[in-house]
């Protein structure tokens, strides 16, 4: 399996709203810290190094 690049998020608008709402009252630094923790939590959920590497490359491009 490689990285899923077709729509896979259940209820995209709701997810996006949760994400932005969570940071609405945060400073940029607080939001950056939260995003970083979120990356780590999601990375652990994925687990596989090949997928994570592919995601890092995709995000950096």
């Amino acid at each position: 399996m490689s990285l899923i690049l077709t729509p896979n998020i259940e209820s995209p608008d709701t997810f996006y709203e949760r994400l932005t709402d969570a940071q609405r009252d945060m400073t940029d630094a607080e939001a950056a810290a939260m995003n970083t923790r979120l990356v780590l939590i999601l990375a652990n959920q994925i687990g596989r190094l090949d997928l994570l590497s592919e995601a890092i490359d995709l995000a950096r491009a």
Binding site: A32, A33, T36, R37, V39, L40, I41, N44
Partner: peptide
């Protein structure tokens, strides 16, 4: 530094972060 601090922050409550 933000990543480092996030790992340390999470590792207090989340076991998954500790090996990092």
């Amino acid at each position: 530094r933000t990543y480092r601090d996030a790992v340390l922050h999470l590792s207090r409550t989340c076991e998954f972060a500790r090996p990092l």
